[in-house]
Structure formats: C-alpha cells, structure tokens
Design a protein around this nucleic acid. Structure first.
Lengths: 260, 260
DNA sequence: GCGGGCGGTTCATTATTCAAACCATCGGTT
DNA sequence: AACCGATGGTTTGAATAATGAACCGCCCGC
C-alpha cells in the first residue's frame, strides 16, 4: 500500500463520534507503527489537514474546510442534499440519510433527524455502512455495476445481527426484488430493531453512486408509514438527481410511477 | 519532502478559480514528474479526495465534504464565520474576508461580498495571501509569535505592486503602528487600487491565528467609510473570538475601546 | 497523414519509509 | 518516594516504495 493511502486512512479514522485521537490510539486503530503514524501526522499537520489540541491529541484541521468550499463551488451537492434530507425527515417523522459509494465502501454523506420523536435512529456511529447489511447497500448493489456486485458478494459477509442477510444466493434474490419494486426494504440487518427503506441515486452518466434512505425503529413501522416513506423517497431521489444533474433510468422512473 | 506532502500540494492546487485540472497541467503546476503525479492522484482518488470528470480532468472529490462535516462538528467555525462576514459585508458595503495562519502561509478561509456595488474586490484568486503585502498579513505579523515574524521578514519579500512594503525595517515600523492602533491599514500593497483594513484574531490560548479584513477599491474609500469599517471590524473580531472560544488580549481590547 | 499534445505505463536506480527498540514524562498506586 | 504502565516523541539498519526519463497509444488540428 502506498504511503499516501496510509495517511488518508488516518484521516478516515476521525468521525463525529471520535473527533480527537491520540498518537498511540491512532496507531492502534490504523494497525500501523507509531513512528509511521507520527511522521504521517506531521506531514498532514504541515498541510493543515490535521492539528493538535493542547492535550496533544490530533483532530482534523482547518484546511479540510477550504477544500470542502472549493468542492462545493465545483459540484454543489451538500446544499441540495441537506434540503432534501431535512424535508424527508420532516414529512416522514423519521431519520433520513444519504450515502455514497466511494471505491469499495459506502460512506454516509449527510443525514437529518426528525424533530418529533423522543427515540430515533442515530447516524453518528454509522459513517461507513456495509453493503449487504443495510437497505442503502442493497439498493446500491441492485443497480450498481455488476463487477462491484460480484466483488461484494464474493467478499466476507459478516452477520451483524441474527437478521443480517449473509447468503449470496439470498442476497441475489433480494436484489432482483429491489429492481422489480424500485426500492430496498430491510428489517434489522444492520442493527436490531431498525427498519430501513432506501432508493438508489444516479449521476449524470446514469451510474449508481449511492442511495437515500429512511430508518425507523421497527416498533413504530406500520403499513401506512411504510407507504408514506416509500413515496417520499421517490420524491427525494427525483429532487436529488435533478439538483446535481443526475440521470434517473427511464425504467426505474416507470417502476416508481406504477408503484404510486 | 515527504510523499504525503507532495500529494497534499496537489490538493492545494485546486481552487474556486481553477476547480478542474488535467494530469499534465497538474504536473507542471506542482513542478513534479507526470508519473509521480499520476500515482499520487490514484491514491487520492482511492480515498475519494479527488475524482475524475468524463473529460479525464481531476477535481476535488466527495470525501472532503465528509471530513469538513466532522471538522465542523468538532470545532464549529465556518458557521459563525459566515454569519459575521455576511454582516460585515452588509454593514460596510464592501468585501469582507477571513484568513488563517496555516504553518508559514496565510490562507483565506471564507469571504462575503456586499450586494450593493457593481464593483468590489474579488477574492476568488486570493486564497493564499502574502504576509508582507496585505493588511491581513501585517495584522497577523504584528500580533503573532515573534519567531514567525522573524522568519517572514528574513524571507523574500517580493514587490507585487509599486506600493508593496518590501523593506524589513519599514515593515517593522508598520507593525509597531498596528500594535498601537489595534488594526492594520494598507493601500495597494497586494493589488493596485485596493485599500484594505484588518484586525487580528486569537484562539483560546490567545495566540494569533488569523485576521478578519475588509477590502475596498481605493477610489471609494473616505474617512467616514474608513471609520465605519474599523469599528465594524472590532465588532466582528469580538463576535468571532466569542463564537469559537477565542481569547482577545486585554490590552488590545483596551486599544479598541479607546479608538471608538 | 502528420505533429504535438494528451492521459497513462514501464523499469532500473535510489531515496524514503518501516518496525522495533529506546527516551522522557506524566498520573496513579503501592 | 519508588514503581508501574501508560503516553508522545525519537532513533536505527534493513527493506520497501518512490522516482523520473523514456515510451505508448490516442485524439485533435492542420
């Protein structure tokens, strides 16, 4: 593995639920030598991507904000995503989130909580999602490049709960059903007691780049709520693809229209 | 120089005014070998920090947004900065911007334009500012760690315009005056016909970490406007330091209070 | 169809990075 | 106060990864 990749792995260890990390912890988490981590951090620090607190712990630095500003000016995405997710959370009364494919991973890009409920599905600790154990992941797999699908199904499919789909054959069946209905539906595959629904998102070349989803506590799910969520997801996907110039495949649009 | 630093230099080449860059251009701009740049880009791409357009050009990738989200959740800064700069631009009717010290550089963090005028000072091409040729830089130098001051004054001080201060002795005099008045004032040092005023900003440890400034076309500057801008800058600095837990040195607060 | 630009690739040389051990320092425990 | 087990930070020869000149095929304008 290249040196640069190692440095970037370090950056990925920071998250909302773990925003500051010490040198030794960082080395342990990354599975790297402490000296290596230290040297990498010094370079990241010089570039402002990382900074040190008074307690010597490391955290992401101010440079990431500048880069994000440039990215947003280049491809405005966050803004429309925020608006749509906010709307989705408000109309469904549940947690909405949007995740993107990044290489072989599925990374949560943004999310919004409903103000209404005391309990809701939290996203702070779910910044990287498994393909096989989430409705988001299944929605993406169903419409993604077959090569990605094959790689994921060939890889390890750990059971995160007793409900997690782990059999490649079973998963392929589910993907066929998702293609037929236009949305993914999974109960308790990632966390017990979470029911989530997802629809895929596409870029300008009609390639599947992620999915938007709504997650609810299973106890609260009803047929009526489920219907509301599915329709809201269709609308959200339309708005998102329109907002950043993505292209919704014709046949999928038809499936959605028929479902409503 | 380390490999990681080279990769990060590549990231820094992207800006609002140059958001997409081809491989050869990138190699030329960075002064590196094309093969090297290509390899670095592939690693950056794998991490999602960079992506390729259909035309094979490179641009910043979606990962920077996730990192920025984490950073903002850790140290909320952008939000308060945006609000204060917006306010500053509105009340003065001129361009406001905030820049931060990052290592030996001065990097523009955010800016806001006044809606009023047809002409205004643009910031798109001024993402990295020289210390000696801007009011922002002088404000920072005046209150920064003496070591940084010494390094900057010992380094090259290129004249960007005929008005750029280039003599270390002259600059030291200016810095003394800035400490006495509490703000920096420079006419045409960075670009001809731009008059800019700046005040320093401090972190929780009372270290100078940047400056907030207002830039106007020289033709429009009047004593009245200048007074308005200076007072607005004092207020903005107060709001900013309060907003992110920074500490304004007592003596500087006194200087500002006396000046009003 | 030719020249010059592009993105991307190769490979021997060489410089950088690695891992394990080592310091100094801190806070709590015995 | 001596000790312990952490921490952040630094050094070392051995091994690995980065490097850059030359090279491809490709496309575009002439």
């Amino acid at each position: 593995m290249g040196t640069v990749s190692k440095a970037l792995i370090l950056l990925d260890l920071f998250s909302r639920s773990r925003p500051e990390i010490g040198l030794s912890d960082l080395a342990r988490l990354a599975g790297m030598n402490k000296a290596t981590v230290y040297r990498l951090l010094r370079e990241l620090q010089a570039a402002g991507l990382v900074e040190q607190t008074e307690a010597k712990a490391y955290r992401l630095g101010p440079s990431v904000l500048r880069l994000a500003g440039v990215r947003e000016a280049t491809v405005p995405m966050r803004e429309v995503a925020r608006r749509v997710l906010r709307d989705l959370a408000d109309t469904t009364g549940e947690t909405a989130h949007l995740s993107q494919v990044q290489g072989e991973r599925l990374v949560t890009f943004d999310y919004a909580y409903a103000p209404a409920h005391g309990t809701s599905v939290r996203m702070e600790d779910a910044e990287v999602l498994p393909f096989h154990a989430t409705s988001t992941g299944l929605a993406v797999l169903a419409f993604a490049d077959p090569a990605l699908r094959a790689r994921v199904l060939a890889g390890p499919l750990p059971a995160l709960t007793p409900e997690t789909p782990t059999d490649p054959g079973d998963i392929r069946d589910r993907l066929a059903r998702i293609r037929a209905t236009g949305f993914a539906d999974l109960v308790g595959g990632f966390e017990a007691d979470v029911h989530s629904l997802a629809v895929p998102l596409f870029d300008a070349a009609a390639a599947c780049i992620g999915a938007v989803a709504v997650a609810t506590p299973t106890a609260r799910m009803t047929p009526v709520l489920r219907g509301l969520i599915v329709v809201s997801l269709f609308n959200a996907a339309h708005a998102l693809c329109a907002g950043w110039g993505g292209f919704l495949p014709e046949d999928l649009q038809k499936v959605w229209a028929d479902a409503v």
